[in-house]
Write a protein that binds this DNA or RNA. Structure first.
Lengths: 196, 196, 196, 196
DNA sequence: TATGAATGAGAATTCATTCAT
DNA sequence: CATGAATGAATTCTCATTCAT
């Protein structure tokens, strides 16, 4: 199974599934449609994935890992926690913008999926959130953010704010506000709210 | 169809569906399980609802309206927009706490829903969000909040922050922070962030 | 599930399955063919049976119980263990003759099935064999059969002899010897062989 | 195709198939599992065998021929038909003991086989049975066995008795009686039963 | 109204077999 | 000869919905 991840077809299927899940939703998506989209036979999918659920799980792991790595690089370009959070907000919304399909799946299907795969911990997502908590802790250490801010609450508040914004974009398919404006607004009042 | 809404069985089914959708998710929920939970026959459900989708739609309308009315009353008890937002945060998290099933459905299924019922506007939810925007506009009028805050962005940021917090509660089933603490934190830095 | 066994459709399906399993064998038998034969929808089968395996199991239980009851009555008509065994042989071959489908399934599928349902004890079959052992024990008590005969071995030898004979009939579909002749031959030398 | 039978891989596959068919049954056995067991690629099997059915047929031919040859030698060591039958019983049960896998396949799959390969005559098995008939005929000629015994019935009765005994061993995996005891019992009362 | 047995279209999954390498 | 990835036909089983009672 290990070497399969380097396989060209594996990625073709992941890509196809991303497209189809985004368009139809996980349940309405048919294996045969993913197969057609990926230009493979139905049975080929079962060489690379255990079952339909497994496609969704792998798709997350794969894509969230990429998103995570990307974000780690982006925020490491800044030293100042304030700048880091501003960058995070902008980068997050840009990622959503650039990869609507994936964003839509995360928005809709990650939540749904937690229902049918209770056991799935969604580790990359947890790590993604933890990036925010780390920045906040750094800021508190440097005396930039108030000590009484609970990073575990604040990380969710910040992510939730960005996420709700992008959900709006993803689902409404029209963008009323410019990305930079939205990012500045959100990180803006979040920062004002936690600054010392 | 009109008089059906006053029927006892109608509400029994709504209640049963709320429980079952929350536990299994919309797709995994079986009509027969809802029927069993509601103590009616499978066929009876089709007297009160058009189909499975319709149950979910009615459930939203019904329950969100109640949530909405409740919230309108709660925030009308305050005059100060700042107080109103603090109240909103607390009330929202308390509602989630008191009605985990409904909260879980909103968390998961409202998002899903836009997929399988493209036409459904989810009006009550939109109105719920608009409550926040109204408070912000009032605050701006009164000179309490900064003029450059975009209510359409801020309402989502605020709701998203609360929502992400409650998703954590709903899905993790353990509460690490006290409700009041979480509400204060979230409304706290949001308010600091938008204050003039 | 209990009341289902009294249902008309339940028996229609059992009957249809008996016919189809006998004709095609368990694995080659299609649920849809059983459904067609029983004049019900495919789905209806799953109201009365858990799955394909369950049909086979129920079919055994149902039919073997009938065979068992029938045989108990037949041999209770005789007192003499010798006569009982003669009757058993004749009755067994007659039953096979009268119910070729069922006999074929027992011949072929009971064995096969023990593979995919290792856990299945096939209780009625065990009881059927035990009828023979009981007669032998009775004969030994009465001094008619030799003491050194092991009932656990002899019951299998006797049943095996009859069974191999009927397998031949069932599978070859032509009967070279008259039933009574065959029964007499088999019980004949078996009896001579165990007599004191 | 002729030279293939001398090939090392051909026999490796036969052996592997014997093991897998015995464990899983013909239908549940997967070509890929046989291939893995034989340490060859799936496709290699199709160089040596036409298809899955062909593996089973060849396996019979191959193994039954060995069993048959073995048995012919064993019983030719005796002149007396009585001794021959005693030897047959003992040798049969010993063969079963020594080659449980093959015995299990004969038990289960030979019966099955007539279903999925109607055309297949199972010649070696027929010959194996005929060995018994030949001994009986010889005994009748020598005046040792009663004239009215029908060899065609008796051969089945004798084989059936042994077979049912070994089925018990094969499937129950525990041996309650010593082989010699069982063989003596069965040939014992069979012989007493047919003796003049 | 209420019932719940029956329906049957629809989907996921399996696996013998092929064939390009 | 040998390989094993790819195929896709075939089959079981599910479940929303209907309708005779």
């Amino acid at each position: 199974m290990g070497k399969r991840k380097n396989n060209k077809k594996y990625h073709k299927i992941i890509e196809a599934a991303t497209k189809v899940f985004a368009k139809k939703g996980f349940y309405k998506a048919k294996i045969s449609e993913i197969a057609r989209e990926a230009e493979v036979a139905d049975g080929t999918i079962y060489i690379y994935f255990e079952n339909k659920d497994d496609i969704l799980i792998c798709l997350f792991e794969e894509q969230m890992k990429a998103v995570l790595d990307n974000m780690v690089i982006r925020i490491s370009e800044e030293d100042d926690p304030v700048k880091k959070l501003e960058k995070f907000a902008l980068a997050h919304l840009q990622l959503v913008e650039q990869n609507k399909n994936m964003a839509e799946i995360i928005q809709v299907e990650v939540r749904q999926s937690s229902k049918f795969m209770k056991e799935y911990r969604n580790e990359p997502f947890v790590q993604y959130l933890e990036l925010i908590a780390d920045i906040i802790r750094q800021g508190q250490k440097e005396g930039l953010f108030r000590k009484e801010i609970i990073p575990g609450v604040a990380k969710r508040a910040f992510f939730g704010a960005l996420d709700e914004m992008s959900r709006f974009w993803v689902l409404s398919s029209r963008r009323q506000y410019d990305i930079k404006t939205a990012a500045q607004q959100i990180s803006g009042y979040f920062l004002d709210g936690i600054k010392a």
